[in-house]
Amino acid sequence: MGAEPLLRIENLQKHFPIRLGAFGESTAVVHALDDASFDIIAGETLSLVGESGCGKSTTGFTILNLHRATGGQVLYKGRNIAGLDEKAMRPIRRDLQIVFQDPYSTLNPRMTVGEAVGEPMLFHKLVKKPELAERVAQLLGDVGLPPRFAQRYPHELSGGQRQRVAIARALACQPRFIVCDEAISALDVSIQAQIINLLLDLQEKYGLTYLFIAHDLAVVRHISDRVGVMYLGRFAELGTRDQVFGTPLHPYTRALLSAVPEADPVAERSRQRQVLEGDVPSPLSPPSGCRFHTRCPLAMDVCRSTVPAWRDTGVGHFVACHAVPG
């Protein structure tokens, strides 16, 4: 791609210490994210996929400094923002926003839609009180809601409408970057398509950059420029959409794609599915070497002992696997 990165993530790491036992007598560390290094290019949609507990949401949160990184850097405008305190973060927050899966739990039930959307602008002193209503109406228009919705409360809205409000709120400060953390996962199929289209329209209109966290691979294929595949806290593969879906390199990516059902009964009947055995191991004590080796059909001795290096195969297609040549 060669374009300027909006964010550069270097060796980012996030561990959560937890207490175990009935009285918290012992402690352990959840290895939620280890050694993540990648760029997020201005104007692109980079998706992160993987199964629950793979660290995709942790990656999003840690980039936004909503989780304090255990190690590594997040470079934004040439400056490391990982670990900045709240005060130093404040002006940067305007640029970096997030939309969550469940807007019902993130919107204040006692605030009208207008108040919820207007609040960030007042907080960052971006508009004066008299202009607020107009700007709120404009934002609601951007997300396809009529201005009268400003007077409504979250419980009066449908799931799709609430997600539109959450998006309007994220847009309020004219951000450059939005993390969409399973933002469409809870929506019904017919509504999901509406919100996907809305996100694409807004990206075009405002030149937004998305980090799109999702587990639905068909949706990810539809909206992404590039895709990162994660397994148990590490990146397995990252490349353009066509690279990852068309010529997947990592055995985990291949297994993941093979597990996705297709909306075609004829194709499904003749399909040879590569079903992965077993479950994802615990992130409390991830397997040695390559974390996928316990379920990998290609596992060799070296996979059990040595963490595979994260490398570019030459065309911006990154992979961490001993079995991939080159």
């Binding site: 199964e51 587990h215 597990a259 059902p261 079903v275």
Partner: peptide
């Protein structure tokens, strides 16, 4: 369930 586990259950 996750998609790889879903595939197991469906099969």
């Amino acid at each position: 369930l996750d998609v790889t586990i879903q595939a197991q259950i469906v099969e």
